[in-house]
Amino acid sequence: MSQFLTNGKVRIGLAVFGAFLLIALIGSWLVSSVLGTDPHRIDYDALGAAPGGEHLLGTTTSGQDVLAQLITGCRGSVAVGLLSGVLAVGVAALVGVTGGFIGGRTDQMLTAVTNIFATLPSFPLMLIVAGYMANVGPVAIALLIGLFEWPVCARYLRAQTLSLRGRDFVQALRMVGESRWRMVLVEIMPHLTGILSSLFLRAVVTGVFTEAGLRFLGIGGGDSVTWGTMIAFAQQQEGVVRGMWWWFAPPGLFIALLGTATALVNFGLDEIGNPVLRHSSRAAVRRATAHMAARRDRTNTVEVAS
């Protein structure tokens, strides 16, 4: 665990993640107090203005400040992401850990259900359910996403629990007659925190992704601003065809930044597990190889004198 936080990639990834969380938390204050505007206010003097001057990131076709929308949208997107992530990982833990720990017929049933849900094309399914629900608020969207996102996480957790179950200390506790649930909560769960947090991070990003996709397709009413709605409006109001890149580019990049941050954390975890990939050790290797290459050049010939 100490290695975890000293890894550069993990640090950067978590920092980016934290920064977005912070913006999501204090975003509305930032917009109202620092920028002195709100995401819906229309500036009739600057309709579709390019970045610069009063509007740092320009305005939309209808004269709304892009930066203010971006900051406000962060809250909308991240909130949905977090909620769906909690739900997905929660359900996954319930299904995966239970199945993996209890085993037998229960496990077979749960695995079958997991596999069925994993195989069903989730995006069209979400689209349809959302289509039936006349007015879908952010909470409903988050629940919907979480509901279709858990199978992947459940698989990982089940596999991990299975391997934990086989370990000596769990076997020993079984012998002693420790109660099942106490064992799961006190002995198994702590060993799963690593994978749980990694899965949660990924689930949050998937949530942000999917929310943006659904909002882009016009699912989910209300006037809440998210990165997805920004891109959707940019397309609908001809922001793309008019070349207003400052409108549709930033929200997409922010989503990608969030995704890259998660990828970085996972890269870092890989490196901790597999030292060959570690950059600093690569540097050391490079020095040593250079040293050997120099030696090779000095001998310069394949034959050695005998």
Binding site: M292, R295, R296, T299, V302, E303, V304, S306
Partner: peptide, 10 residues
Amino acid sequence: GHLLDLVTLD
């Protein structure tokens, strides 16, 4: 009959 150094042989 050749003598090669396997450490540095490319």
